[in-house]
């Protein structure tokens, strides 16, 4: 009880009391159910601060945390044919597209950008699971090709964050043809001698796993990410039996030799800097407050790599 509840007129009072717990300040962890303060959750890259569960993160949020000072420039992706098959299920494909664009504020299911990560020049591509399940259609194919071509032109490594339910059925065979198309993109990088690092995030399945997501030089997955070709439900239907706990999860794939590492999102940036710098033959990264550009890098202890990005973007 304070003076407002006692003295302010009831109508105003009701407004104030409603403001006591606005819904958007808190979100609930999908895993442990704990209420998490929004800003804290965002600062922790959508990883639950109490149980460590990795929730979805949009490509834009990811890039803001990945690139130095959150600064990156988007790489333009050639627009594909719109609705090439005139596809219609219960809804028309263009209507589904517009709904997804409205819901996400994004044009399509992949974002491609260039910039610096711990002063390491890179090209990055991230798939957006919130956009029609991150599905791989012609746009995603074009995005990966554009990313590879840009990386080759700039002689930079490509870091790709995968997240998709698979191919986009509404583009029929043309979505399937993104498997060979994106494979050609990976080959461009390999032939140019540039690292191609795949970060597999929850979920990465179907034709995406069976093409560019499994052709990396290094495969890193986020904890507990579902990574598979055929989904667990399909397999359960085929076999008629329950699958073991943790089947097709990141740790399971690590055990079966399909991944190099399973790394929490909060430690990913530091690890990516370390790996790309070694593969590119660069000096160890400088961490903490970065000296102005031009100063040569000095060796620094690896634990400092997870320090927050520098305030100013490097030139």
């Amino acid at each position: 009880m304070n003076w407002i509840t006692n003295y302010v007129r009831p109508r105003i009072n009701s407004i104030f009391s409603r403001r006591d717990t606005p819904e958007n300040l808190w979100s609930k962890c999908d895993n442990c159910g704990n209420m998490l303060f929004h800003r804290e959750l965002r600062e922790n890259l959508n990883v639950c601060t109490s149980c460590g569960h990795h929730m979805a993160i949009t490509p834009r949020e990811r890039f803001s945390a990945l690139f130095d000072g959150g600064v990156f420039s988007e790489i333009k992706v050639p627009a594909p044919l719109e609705d090439p098959l005139r596809f219609r299920d219960q809804k028309r494909y263009p209507d589904r597209m517009r709904a997804a664009q409205k819901a996400t504020g994004e044009k399509e299911a992949m974002l491609v950008a260039e910039g610096e990560m711990g002063r390491t020049p890179i090209v990055a591509a991230a798939q957006d699971f919130s956009f029609m399940g991150g599905s791989m259609g012609m746009y995603v194919g074009n995005a990966i090709i554009a990313a590879a071509e840009r990386a080759v032109a700039l002689k930079r490594p490509l870091i790709l964050f995968s997240a998709a339910g698979g191919a986009r059925m509404q583009e029929g065979i043309l979505s399937l043809m993104q498997m060979p198309r994106t494979t050609v993109a990976v080959q461009m990088l390999k032939e140019a001698g540039l690292p191609y690092i795949v970060v597999l995030t929850h979920p990465t399945t179907g034709g995406v796993t069976a093409s560019y997501a499994m052709l990396g030089d290094v495969h890193i997955a986020e904890p507990n990410a579902l990574i598979c070709f055929a989904g667990p439900r399909v397999i359960e239907q085929t076999l008629g039996e329950k699958l073991p706990e943790g089947f097709q999860r990141a740790e399971y794939l690590l055990d079966h030799g399909m991944l190099d590492r399973v790394t929490p999102r909060t430690e990913l940036r530091g690890e990516l800097i370390t790996i790309t710098r070694m593969l590119m033959g660069l000096n160890p990264a400088v961490a903490g407050d970065l000296p102005p550009p031009g100063d040569t890098a000095e060796a620094s202890p690896p634990e400092a790599l997870n320090a927050p990005p520098a305030e100013k973007p490097a030139k």
Partner: peptide, 22 residues
């Protein structure tokens, strides 16, 4: 779509075969 096939890397095997074709 089977348990063993997934364990032994069905996706990777398909990806490598497409890659080899190219």
């Amino acid at each position: 779509p089977g348990k063993g096939a997934e364990e032994r890397g069905q996706s990777e095997a398909i990806a490598r075969s497409t890659e080899k074709c190219l």
